[in-house]
Design a protein around this nucleic acid. Structure first.
Lengths: 337, 337
DNA sequence: AAGCGGCATTTAGACGATTCAATCCACCAC
DNA sequence: GTGGTGGATTGAATCGTCTAAATGCCGCTT
């Protein structure tokens, strides 16, 4: 009843377990007729390899962990698809884990992955300085940071978030905005901090532009809507005329709040999001957004990991950085006099 | 250098491996000072349990596979979150796999999961009659169908898709539409077939209403846009005045195409989608949609699986069916005279 | 006929954790 | 002093697969 093992396959084929294993792993060294007999036996019994046993024996698994901040953010699922595409070619499996921007959940997933002795971990960490991450690495699990630059101690694949912030900032300032909101969070997250730094430096260089900061715990549609309501309720005089949001989910929620509050986008409020997810262009008012090459990020991260795993000793950590693009759509396409 | 094993922990603590294992699994039977010594040793060496070994010994893993049709569809990520929430409580891990509506990829994932001897599999299958699925089950892996009703041979959690189709159909007919398009695919997928049957029966009961069918390979934004362009190009006389799309991604793409083609929604074209994903209400024209309780689906499926795994022998397969709700928003809120 | 090379196959440990029967020891009762 | 009791600990077998070394076998050469 239970799944048959290699032993039963061997018995039925009248050979030893070693031979069966050879058929499975180096079929060419087995005599053709023996091979045939074994293969028949495998089929007849419905034998399925036991990955746990292989893994135990081999000492390393064929699974890669991918820990992202939010699976319901299309940015991360696109990223995951990129990673998985490459994994597929290397006959490895991707285990997608959702930390929900929660260090506790993140830690839990890392523990699980380490116990599974995964080949390696791709992670968009909540905090890349987390000592637990360091410990993980020092205990021998290769880690590649994704969407987050590492210092020389790790491989990483990221996008220049400060540039992203500057692009958005420049665009809004050039469009004549003088009160701009930056919305994102938590500010301790490097991605958010960098995007903020980017727009901050731009604003500081310009004369008479004020930047208002709004922090959220989680960057989802709901939070964007909430902040939007708060801002819409401000007296027009104090209210920013443009908002730069640290991701598109926030921006979409924010946009909804504007429409509910009866504010016109982009006339009363210009909006720029981040990530350029597919839904951005389908929004009520098509959303301007800073585009990141999500799939490429995932793919490159996996590439670096494969490299590290295979080269093992002579591997040098690398930090790959991509450039973001600003995509201007209707939501910010309005020049303020 | 390599991760230490239980043996080294035992040696350092001056006890046998059995004792270490006891500290890990039944700490209360170990004398307090011995326990302390072992725990210190564990900490000092940075010992991490080897899941592969545990699994091999135990014969069953603590992982559940979840195979969905499209991870970038928020419906499925919501569903995944529901499943994972429950898994978390049971100290099990969810492995999220993306079949991309491709039987080959689906098969590949099932193979991988079976090799890993997962506790069980939750799957939204491409084709629930697939003999491979049957084989999998007969070899002993518990399977629960998700978003897809099973016959008595399996547990399943689904939503009444025919009802969903009828709700959409009634709504559109009552709004005065006489030429309605149904768009989805592949038609061989049960969910799609049922939604279609639902609207078809409704249309047949009404006088003088015509239903036009459009089939797509994959239900994504891109495909929706393509079909939208095709339909927008029809002469107004032949063009349907309303479209019911088998998921929201299609609907969002379709909506975009309407706007590009200069057709007003809902006046020139009413639109009803399916799933009611978060983005539906944030769309250019807020989208009417048939809502499915995605998280609940995931949660319930996991519940059934846990039940099957634990009760083992005295388990009776159950088919849980939820009811969908029609959410009417602006995209179909227009009565045609 | 003995020896040898070469191929096909077998044998026998690992791998790391779990578990259960067996052992050990201290203490108490008689 | 003997036997018993019970709690703490140990030892050894086991899970399924892989692999390196060993064996067996055949035919060929010398």
């Amino acid at each position: 009843m239970a799944t048959p093992s290699i032993k039963e396959v061997a018995h039925r084929a009248g050979v030893s377990v070693g031979t069966v294993s050879n058929v499975l792993n180096r079929p060419w060294i087995v005599a053709p007729d023996t091979r045939q007999r074994v293969q028949d036996s495998i089929r007849a019994l419905g034998f399925v390899r036991n990955e746990a046993a292989r893994h135990l024996r081999a000492g390393r698994s064929r699974t890669v962990g991918l820990v992202v901040l939010d699976v319901s953010n299309p940015f991360f699922t696109n990223l995951a698809e990129g990673a998985e595409a490459l994994a597929y070619e290397h006959d490895t499996v991707v285990m997608l884990c959702n930390s929900k921007t929660d260090p506790v959940r993140e830690g839990h997933h890392l523990d699980q992955l380490e116990q599974q002795r995964v080949m390696g971990i791709l992670i968009t960490p909540f905090d890349s300085a987390d000592p637990r991450l360091q410990a993980l690495v020092s205990r021998g699990t290769p880690v590649v940071l994704v969407d987050r630059a590492a210092d020389s101690g790790l491989c990483s694949v990221s996008v220049d978030d400060q540039l992203g912030g500057r692009l958005a900032g420049n665009h809004l300032i050039e469009s004549g905005h003088r009160r701009i909101a930056f919305i994102g969070g938590p500010f301790t997250m490097q991605q958010v901090a960098d995007r903020r730094t980017g727009i901050t430096t731009t604003v500081e260089k310009a004369d008479g532009v004020e930047l208002q900061l709004f922090e959220v715990d989680v960057m989802g549609v709901v939070e964007g809507r909430a902040i939007g309501e708060r801002i819409a309720a401000l007296p027009a005089r104090a209210r920013p005329t443009a908002a730069f949001l640290a991701n598109d989910l926030l921006a979409l929620g924010f946009l909804q709040a504007m429409s509910v509050a009866g504010l016109q986008v982009p006339r009363d409020m210009a909006i720029v999001g981040y990530d350029d997810i597919d839904f951005a262009r389908a929004a009520a008012v098509p959303l301007s957004s800073v585009r990141q090459p999500a799939e490429l990020l995932g793919r490159s991260a996996m590439e670096l990991l494969q490299e590290e795993v295979e080269a093992a000793d002579r591997h040098r950590h690398r930090q790959v950085i991509f450039q973001p693009d600003l995509i201007v759509r209707e939501s910010s396409d309005y020049v303020r006099r």
